[in-house]
Amino acid sequence: MNRAVRHESFLAWRNFRHLKWACVLSILSVGLYLGFDFPAGHNGGTWLGYTLGTIGALLIVWLMWFGIRKRRYGPGNWSLKGWLSAHVYLGLSLVIVGTLHTGFQLGWNIHSLAYILMLIVIASGAIGLLVYVRVPQLMTENRRSQSLDEMARAIVEIDGEAAKAALQLSDEFAELVRMSQNGTHIGGSFRRIITARDSGCGTARAIARAREISRNLPPVEAQKASELARILGGKLEIVQRARRDLRLKALLDLWLYIHVPVTIALVITLIAHIIAVYFYWG
C-alpha cells in the first residue's frame, strides 16, 4: 500500500534510511580506528583524527541547520520528517565519530570542553527523542478528547453546579466552594507545572474539609454535603488532568532548553577548539 495513506514515524522514514547511513558512518569510523595504528597513539592530530574531526565538525554544522530548516516553509519536495530522521540518527552517530576523534585523550582544556558539550547536546537530544516517543500518547490518553479550553469550560460549569449545591447547605460550604473557585490554580510556577501538583490546591482542600465537616452533620445534610464533595471531586479530576496536560506539554519542550543553548555554547567552543588547533599547527 502506498506510503502516503499511512502514518509513518520519522524514525522509520524511508525504511530507516538514515539509521542505515548512521550505522555505515559509525562502523566505518570504528573500522578505521581499529585498522590503523599511529606511533603516538590515537589522537586528534593524526590524519584519521583530522578526518573524523572534520566529519564531526561538518556534521555539527549540518545538524544545526535543522533549526533553520524547520522554520523554512517554502515550496519544494522536502519533508521535515526526513530531516528530523537524519538529524536524530546522524546526531547519535556523532557520539562515535566525536569520541574516536578524541582518541580517548581528555583533559582540562577547551578541546575536551567542546567534547563534553557535544555529549550534553546529544544526551539532551536523546532524552528529547524518548520524550517524543512516549509523551504524545500519554497526552492523548490524559486529555480524553478534551482540549485545554474545553477543560477550562467544564471547570467553570462545575463551579456553577457546586455553587448551586452549596445553596442548600450552611455558609461554611459556600465558603468552601469559594475556596475551590479562587484557590485552584493550573500551572503557575515551574515547580507546579513540572510536578503537576499544587500542595495548596483550593479544591483538594475544600473536598477534604467538606468531608470533615459532614461527619458531624445530620444524615440528610450529610448527604447533601457528600453530593457537593462529589461535584468538587469531579472538578478535581479535570483540574488534575489539566495540570498533567501542562506537565506533559512542558516535558515536550523542556529538553530543548538544554539542547539549544548548549548547542550554541558548543559551536563557540568548537570554533575556539579549531582555532587553537591551527594555532598549534603554526
Binding site: 499511512r6 502514518h7 520519522f10 524547520k70 519536495n77 522536502w78 519533508s79 521535515l80 530531516w83 504524545p136
Partner: peptide, 16 residues
C-alpha cells in the same frame, strides 16, 4: 511544489 505544507512541515510524520 511539494504539496500541502502542513504535511511537509510535520517533523514526526503525525500529519498526513
Amino acid at each position: 511544489r511539494g504539496g500541502p505544507a502542513c504535511v511537509r512541515a510535520c517533523p514526526t510524520g503525525a500529519a498526513i
